[in-house]
Every structure is written in structure tokens, then in C-alpha cells.
Amino acid sequence: MKNYFALGAFLYFCCTFPAQSEGYDVLRHKMVEEVLADIAAEVSYSESSALSPSVVAAMQKVERHLFVPASQTMRAYFNRPLPIGYGQTISQPLIVAMMTDLMQVKDSDKILEIGTGSGYQAAVLAEIVKSVYSIEIIHPLGKQAAERLKSLGYDNVEVRLGDGYYGWPEAAPFDAIIVTAAANHVPPPLLKQLKPGGRMLIPLGMHFMTQYLMLVEKKMDGSVTSRQILPVRFVPFTRKH
């Protein structure tokens, strides 16, 4: 009896897996459509009101449901942040898309990520750039992400467990750096490891609630400026008529 049950379960899995996978494709496509619509309608973070094609393609390709705990799979393609354990979250797809777009990465770029989390942001970047170096401070989370990225074939992502404050000097300099871990100040070693002309991105706020994004730009002369960017189009006062 037990064997019949196991066989039944196996057959069910075999039959439904492609269908589910296909279902995820549809959901992912809808999610990206939603992100694009949001950006066109309300988002004002950059001059243009559309994502770059490479970011759209990456978002279409990376299977978000494989980066969330099993309990969250059903909600993987909602345009919302989700809990991934250890008090951490996978960012809202809209924010991931915006951050990736703001970094203006190219296929030849080398990126440093501080705060691997689920590995989703690293995977999106890895679809576009040459290599991603990612550091995670919470060991179990970093280990899971490293295994996940490896099993999904992201050979251009390297994950290191430990302190991100000093960056990854052996691989420096980087074309762009993304600091998704909570930052009370920008570590000077990271700024040093950013190439002149490079961009660093830091989301600020609470979990589940990214308040604004900070884009640090290192000019060719080595001087640094930052931009504080609200994800949403919002003017803080009513204009006089």
C-alpha cells in the first residue's frame, strides 16, 4: 500500500512539475509586466520611464520562486518583499529592478554585492554582467544562497561568508557595488574598491519597507557625490495654482 502511495506521488510530481514550471513562467512574465507598468506610471527614479532591456530580460529569466523558502513559493511572483528566514527578506521585484537599472551595469562589468541574502539580486546581476562577488554576513543564509546559485548554474557568482566592510580586495576594483545590508555609514574601503566612474547603490529603510535609495557616484577624479532617490513619484508639497 505504502509503495502504491509513493508511486502515485511520484507520478503526480512528474505530471505536475512541467505544468507548475510553466505556470511560474506565466506568473513571472506577469510580475515583470507589473513592474514595468509601475515604473511607467509612478516611479520617477531616473530620467527615463522604462527599464533597460537587459534588466527586463534578467528579471524575466531569474526564477524567483527558487530563491524563496518553500512556504513562500506560492507568493514568489507577487510584486512584494517576502521573508526568507533569519529576519531577512528578498526585496520587492520593483526595487530589485530599479536598483539593477540604476547601477547601469554592462556585460563586461564586475560587481560587488554586500549582503547576498537569498541570492536573487546576485542572480539578476549575473544574467547581465561578467562576474558578481557577493558577501553574506549571516553564515547559514550565505551558505544556502551559495549552494542555490551553484545548483542553478550561476558560475559567474562567487559567494563569501563573513564581513563585508573591507569588500573583496583581491577582486577589486569593481564597476559597481550594491550594499543591501543595513548601512549606518558607507565603509571607506568599499569606496576605495569602486572604480572611478563607478556606481554604488544602497537601499535605506526597514525590512519590507525600502524608504529611499542612495546612489553614490565616483567621478573620474575620485570625488564622490550621492543622490537620494525616492522610489515613487511624490512631491512633498501641493503646488500653488
Binding site: 509601475d38 506610471a41 516611479v43 525616492l230 522610489p231 515613487v232
Partner: peptide
């Protein structure tokens, strides 16, 4: 109200 209408576009944390 304005921010709530844009809650999924990043208005919620504001």
C-alpha cells in the same frame, strides 16, 4: 491617501 494609492510602487514606506 496619495501614498497609499501608490503603495505597491514604493509609496507605503513613506
Amino acid at each position: 491617501g496619495e501614498l497609499f494609492a501608490m503603495r505597491e510602487q514604493g509609496g507605503m514606506p513613506l
